[in-house]
C-alpha cells in the first residue's frame, strides 16, 4: 500500500508541539512523524522521536585507514630508498609519528564529514514535500501514513492551527 506524506505548516512552535501531541494521541506513532525547521531546537522540543545515529563509528574507521596509509607511505619510502640523512636511522619512529598523526587525523576528519552527510541522509534525490517558508522560521510537521489515513492526519494537522497543508503521493 502506498504511503502518503502530508506536511502541515505552523508559524509558531507552540502550535507545532500541540500538533505533535495531537497526532500521537490520534494514533500516529512518533516514528512516522518528522519535523522540518529552519534552525535547530533543543532535542525533544516537540516531543519528537529521538534521532538515532552511528556517527561515532566513522572517525574511528577513518583514523584506522589514515594511520594505515601513513604507515604504508612512511615505511615504504624509507625502505625503498634507504638513504641515511643527518644520522637519522631508516624507519625513524619520531618523524613517522608526526606523519602518522597527520594522516590519522585527516582520515578521521574526512570520515566524520562523510558520516555527517550519510547519517543526515543527504544528498537526497528529491526534496519531497516541503515549503520554502520553513527556512523563514515556520515549522513543518510531516506525517507518513497509508493513503487511507491521510484525511485523519490532515484533520489533526489542521485542528492544531496549520496555516497550510501539502500532500505528496
Amino acid at each position: 500500500m502506498a504511503n502518503q506524506r502530508i506536511l502541515g505548516l505552523y508559524p509558531d512552535p507552540d502550535k507545532a508541539a500541540e500538533a505533535m501531541n495531537r497526532l500521537k494521541h490520534n494514533g500516529f506513532p512518533a516514528e512516522d512523524l518528522d519535523i522540518y525547521t529552519g534552525s535547530p531546537f533543543p532535542e525533544g522540543t516537540f516531543g519528537e522521536h529521538e534521532p538515532q545515529h552511528r556517527l561515532y563509528v566513522f572517525p574511528f574507521a577513518g583514523a584506522v585507514i589514515g594511520f594505515s596509509l601513513a604507515m604504508l607511505v612512511t615505511i615504504g619510502t624509507q625502505i625503498s630508498y634507504p638513504l641515511i640523512t643527518g644520522g637519522k636511522p631508516i624507519l625513524s619512529i619520531p618523524p613517522m609519528t608526526i606523519i602518522a598523526y597527520e594522516f590519522t587525523m585527516l582520515g578521521a576528519i574526512i570520515a566524520t564529514v562523510v558520516g555527517i552527510l550519510f547519517e543526515s541522509r543527504i544528498p537526497r534525490r528529491t526534496l519531497g514535500v516541503y515549503d520554502e517558508r520553513i527556512t523563514d522560521g515556520f515549522i513543518g510537521i510531516v506525517v507518513s501514513c497509508p493513503a487511507e489515513r491521510g484525511r485523519a492526519a490532515e484533520q489533526s494537522l489542521r485542528a492544531s492551527g496549520a496555516v497550510d497543508i501539502k500532500t505528496e503521493a
Binding site: 531546537f41 519528537e48 555527517i116 547519517e119 543526515s120 543527504i122 537526497r124 519531497g128
Partner: peptide, 15 residues
Amino acid sequence: MNWRGTPQQWKLQGI
C-alpha cells in the same frame, strides 16, 4: 543536497 532540517539533521549539525 536537498537538506530539509529534520531533527536528525540538526542533531548531526550540532554534533
